[in-house]
């Protein structure tokens, strides 16, 4: 098949030399360039605005403070809420999520890149499912988590294993939120793993196989150590994605306000992103919560940007290594 168009829409032979004149070339190049730089400017402005508004709010009292009011009432204090519990909840959530998603995602990636026949229909369906999973709206994951993990799995554990009257597993909990996020971030891990495995040069495998190593030995001792940085990048990207999602955890575990840190995996938890949503939409006095809100957003952005930055650096390094191998 040939993708170079032989003629334009009207059926005229394609004339590459006459139409648009040189001045048009300059004009359009300049236009496209300005659009690209405009977007860069928008991103820079956005980040600078948030950081300038929220950075001075980052003090120890805020970072390590509790959401519970300091006075005798012991209620949710919207205007002075510290973020310690939210950061704790977010880290707990993404930690559980990473533990759950990494084995499955990495093994799927290994299968797709190392063992599968690229033209087999099973491979196509798996690949298609992974891509599809990446495009499912995040709120649907919330519905799925509620219907499947909380009511079906959790409810079944309560009914058939624990025989309890009051729900232990059959209610929103950090473990169900983590499982929901694990399903959501799986495509990130699969795709990164595949990419990392693909960057390992084929001659390395051939050499190992030629020396008599079995396929699994080659994989474990030659390919995986080489691909490790890329696979870890996938994990970091998944964590960054998971830390920013709010819609999937709204019904599966995140709480509006809790007086205590979660004690077990069946407890609910407070989370940074959900906390931002609560503060921004439920606060009785938005102007008073404003500085606090910006500071909370800065904490969340620092968390996700830092993770993204690490991932970008590792990926650049892997790509560089791949190029030097080929050359």
């Amino acid at each position: 098949m040939n993708s170079i168009p032989q003629s334009d829409v009207s059926g005229q032979p394609l004339d590459l030399t006459s139409a648009p004149t040189l001045s048009q070339t300059t004009l359009f190049t300049a236009l496209f360039r300005s659009v690209a730089f405009f977007l860069v400017g928008v991103v820079a402005l956005l980040v600078a605005y948030i950081f300038s508004q929220g950075f001075h709010g980052l003090n120890p009292a805020f970072l390590f403070g509790s959401a519970t009011s300091q006075d005798s009432s012991g209620m949710f204090d919207v205007h002075n809420a510290g973020v310690f519990e939210m950061v704790f909840g977010t880290i707990l959530l993404v930690f559980l999520m990473t533990v759950l998603v990494m084995p499955v995602g990495v093994i799927s990636g290994i299968y797709l890149n190392e063992f599968s026949d690229p033209n087999a229909w099973t491979t196509r369906i798996i690949r298609s499912a992974v891509n599809n999973l990446a495009g499912v709206p995040s709120i649907i994951f919330g519905l799925f988590g509620l219907g499947f993990f909380v009511y079906f799995i959790g409810g079944s554990i309560d009914d058939y294993v624990l025989h309890t009257a009051s729900p232990v597993f059959g209610k929103p909990a950090v473990i169900w939120a983590a499982l929901t996020l694990a399903v959501l971030t799986m495509p990130v891990v699969v795709v990164s793993t595949e990419q990392a495995l693909r960057s390992v040069p084929l001659p390395l495998r051939d050499a190992a196989l030629g020396l008599g190593a079995t396929k699994l030995q080659t994989l474990r001792q030659i390919v995986l150590p080489q691909a490790a940085p890329g696979i870890i990048t996938g994990g970091i990207l998944a964590v960054s994605r998971g830390a920013g999602e709010v819609a999937p955890i709204m019904f599966t575990g995140a709480a509006y306000y809790l007086a205590h840190l979660p004690q077990s995996i069946t407890d609910q938890f407070m989370e940074l992103g959900y906390h931002i949503y609560i503060l921004a939409t439920q606060s009785p006095n938005v102007d008073r919560t404003r500085p606090l809100l910006f500071a909370t957003v800065v904490v969340l952005l620092l968390l996700t940007f830092l993770l993204n930055l690490i991932a970008i650096l590792v990926r650049a390094w892997t790509r560089h290594r791949m190029r030097s191998y080929r050359a």
Partner: peptide
Amino acid sequence: VIELLAGVPSVV
């Protein structure tokens, strides 16, 4: 820089 925008959570 443009891809960094993808890292901004939608709640932000």
